[in-house]
Write a protein that binds this DNA or RNA. Structure first.
Lengths: 250, 250
DNA sequence: CGGTTTTTTGAAAGGGCTCAAGATCCGTGG
DNA sequence: CCACGGATCTTGAGCCCTTTCAAAAAACCG
């Protein structure tokens, strides 16, 4: 049923969480995952300033979108996990606003930006869904922003871990309270406005006070509730209001 | 021609900067500004958790979207200026994710969220434009995020001032290098992850080193170039790539 | 197994915060 | 038009979280 390797599309399986898809929608979506490209850890997918022709669906592995400031500091704007779309908000730009790279080995499915025109012209409902994904991402970004702007290191890290776990749960069935981070501490710092060094110290501290356990890059959330409180974390990933969507036509 | 008071719609005049609109699009857009409501400084427009039924076009005055953390700290997620749309990314939620309030006297034009269905069903092109606005907002948020996460107070403030001026220039013809902030220093701090007190000190410092001049809340940018460098500011507001838009049909 | 990447730890410095209090501005009522 | 009270802006002093710089230990990879 899926386009490749017998796996079903993680994009489709993720979107199904949000809204009922018609057969036609399904067909449009599957097209997004026809081609696939492999990447190795640290590979650059595309650089800031590159013309934007393709978007990507993450099929496997973790990827980041980041920029480097003139002073050498780095800011990781987005972490892309399997099932995520890369570049949805950049279609409005002629050129990429940041670099994208693999933080682990992985696979991306590129599809042409122009392909979106089909969706916009032929499926109002799917368009609304795309719009919603975009909007949902903003909500998530807002939450992260709040964490970075207004919480200390423990709060920020709690937030990030909860967010990642919550997102992984959407596509991985066996995702409970343990995860392997496919991104190093330096980059985690760059997501949270912290130093890699301080990320390390904070993880150590979180282990000391019993919030998490950790062996290498494998982390276990021991007190998810307390972490949620620390980060005022509200899991928003399951709710899309579709009441305003154009009606579903089979 | 405009719906009210002989003024033309600031939404339309803003969108015109980005893309050519058909007559039909125009008519759809004008509907968004049929009704209007007046607000006084500090009025709450709607609270976090309220059901989302309306979106708003800002007709006059400044507004903010913000949340308050359990520890009492506040985070201003968005600053809305005339011509901006409030709530575009929250249509996906059943309930508002943050409070919206007026930071000055102002006027909003509310329109029903359901009204978007018309747009999505009838104008692929306008839908693409809405999508683009949404996406552009993300780009802007990313930039602010980077400033907050990776720059010191001077950089953050430079960024914010440049951003506001740049946005005001889209709708105000006589906007040059002087602006009156319709938002107090405390709230500026809440936008940038700083204390109001430190905003004050930093503004003082910026005046001392000649970046700006200031009398009360009226600020003059004396060295815009230097500030742009400090904040690695890239003005992205004029460029929308419409190459992938569904074709314009008159 | 050797080189590279990543993690870990220490000591010192710094930017922004907190707390507190005074000065100014501004809208409102008399 | 003036006086009053709340909102906002200013300024000072000390503290604290995070950064910097440096370097060692550990993990990873071919």
């Amino acid at each position: 049923m899926g386009p490749t390797e017998g796996d079903q599309s993680c994009l489709v399986s993720k979107l199904r969480h949000f809204v009922e898809l018609s057969e036609q929608d399904n067909e449009l979506l599957i097209r997004f995952e026809e081609e696939q490209r492999e990447y190795k850890k640290r590979d650059l997918v595309r650089a800031e300033g590159d013309p934007i022709e393709d978007l990507f669906v993450v099929k496997k592995g973790w990827f980041i979108g980041y920029t480097t400031l003139p002073n050498g500091k780095r800011q990781v704007h987005r972490l892309y996990l399997p099932g995520d779309l890369i570049g949805t908000h950049e279609v409005v730009c002629e050129r990429a606003t940041y670099d994208v790279a693999a933080t682990s080995d992985g696979i991306l499915c590129p599809f042409q930006k122009i392909g979106l025109r089909h969706v916009f012209s032929n499926s109002p409902r799917l368009t609304a869904l795309l719009y919603s994904i975009e909007a949902l991402e903003q909500v998530a970004q807002d939450d992260r922003f709040r964490a970075v702007a207004r919480m200390d290191a423990t709060g920020r890290l709690s937030y990030l871990l909860l967010q990642i776990v919550s997102r992984l749960r959407l596509t991985e069935d066996n995702m409970h309270d343990r995860l392997k981070l496919l991104i190093n501490q330096e980059l985690i710092g760059d997501m949270l406005g912290l130093t890699g060094i301080h990320v390390n110290r904070t993880l150590k501290y979180m282990k000391e006070i019993g919030l998490i356990d950790r062996t290498g890059s494998v982390i276990t959330l021991l007190q998810e509730d307390r972490m949620k409180e620390l980060a005022s974390f509200d899991d928003r990933h399951y709710k899309i209001d579709t009441s305003w969507f154009p009606p579903l036509i089979e």
